[in-house]
Design a protein around this nucleic acid. Structure first.
Lengths: 164, 164
DNA sequence: TAGATTTCCTATCGATTTACTAGGGAAGTG
DNA sequence: CACTTCCCTAGTAAATCGATAGGAAATCTA
């Protein structure tokens, strides 16, 4: 922990509010069905997300080609593709940039010297693993509460839920 | 990406400079051997880390029980335990707090509603996976450039090194 | 004991990022 | 036209990040 500060919430790897909100909004759209559109306000209320903030995030999802928007009275947002073809990784990347980085640099662009040389393959391995999970699990999986077996088995280990 | 900004380095999951520096410093100590002590300045120079910044990080490692320090002429820092008994995860946690969090909260403390309910087990699975890798790989592994086979095989996939 | 060395502690700093909020314009609907 | 809903730009308070400064405390050598 950083010296001198009492409560440290400074994290090695974190998922931002933006990414979390983006995924939850996309899940609401997935649950609604590919051709039902929902208003930003309705999503915001359902998920407890500040609605003006959510509007910005939905704009990112639209520019990223994940959702389609419609203005006016019967407007709203809907998924651009079937929910089972949209991995969680895509949503996070579109809302928040690259999945994993070290010091703001992506692993392949790092250079290490001396005994730290093997750090690079280690970060790469971590990244590959995160990518594998979040690239495999789709909106449809989560919305239907049916995660793939290999992911479920990871989450089933009781030790995975403990704190430290 | 966030609307309106040109270059986005805003990341879903990142390893901070602090965590990176902490691991690299610990690796220098591991390479030096358990009972050789190194001065902060020497580590800073070897790894290209701002030395006053590093001093603070080494203080965290000391308070976390990972290194032992000695002041004065022949002083410096050395590992408190053999390098093969210190996982990378420990170093990161001591320097930077919990490994993985969502919106600054640790996964078990989150609560989701509706179609987002299965997000929790998903984050838990991601965390379990990161923990598994970083808890398995020790300072000795990295310093000797001999990562465990399962980690190596992850990093060997050429696709793991690609950008997006 | 004096002097040199090196850790240890506190405080501060500028830049960036994060998580939001405000206000109004553009597009579509009845 | 009136109304709705998305769309866009700006701004902002607070936290965090990465780093620096200055000196007190401990330890060693001579």
């Amino acid at each position: 922990m950083r010296a001198g500060t009492a409560v440290m919430d400074n994290l090695a790897m974190r998922i931002s509010a933006r990414a979390d909100y983006a995924v939850r909004a996309a899940l609401e759209l997935a649950a609604a069905g590919e051709d039902t559109s929902l208003k930003a306000e309705a999503i915001a209320e359902a998920q407890g997300i500040p609605h003006k903030f959510l509007e910005g995030i939905l704009g990112d999802l639209r520019r990223g080609g994940l959702v389609i928007s419609q203005r006016g009275g019967k407007g709203g947002y809907r998924l651009a593709r079937p929910a089972d073809s949209i991995p969680i990784a895509d949503v996070i990347r579109v809302a928040d940039g690259p999945l994993v980085s070290v010091r703001g640099v992506r692993p392949p662009d790092l250079s290490y010297v001396g005994p730290a040389e093997s750090l690079l393959p280690l970060w790469i391995a971590v990244r590959a693993n995160v990518r594998k999970i979040l690239g495999e699990v789709t909106l449809a999986h989560v919305a239907a509460a049916k995660l793939p077996d290999d992911v479920l088995s990871l989450a089933d280990d009781p030790e995975a839920w403990t704190n430290p």
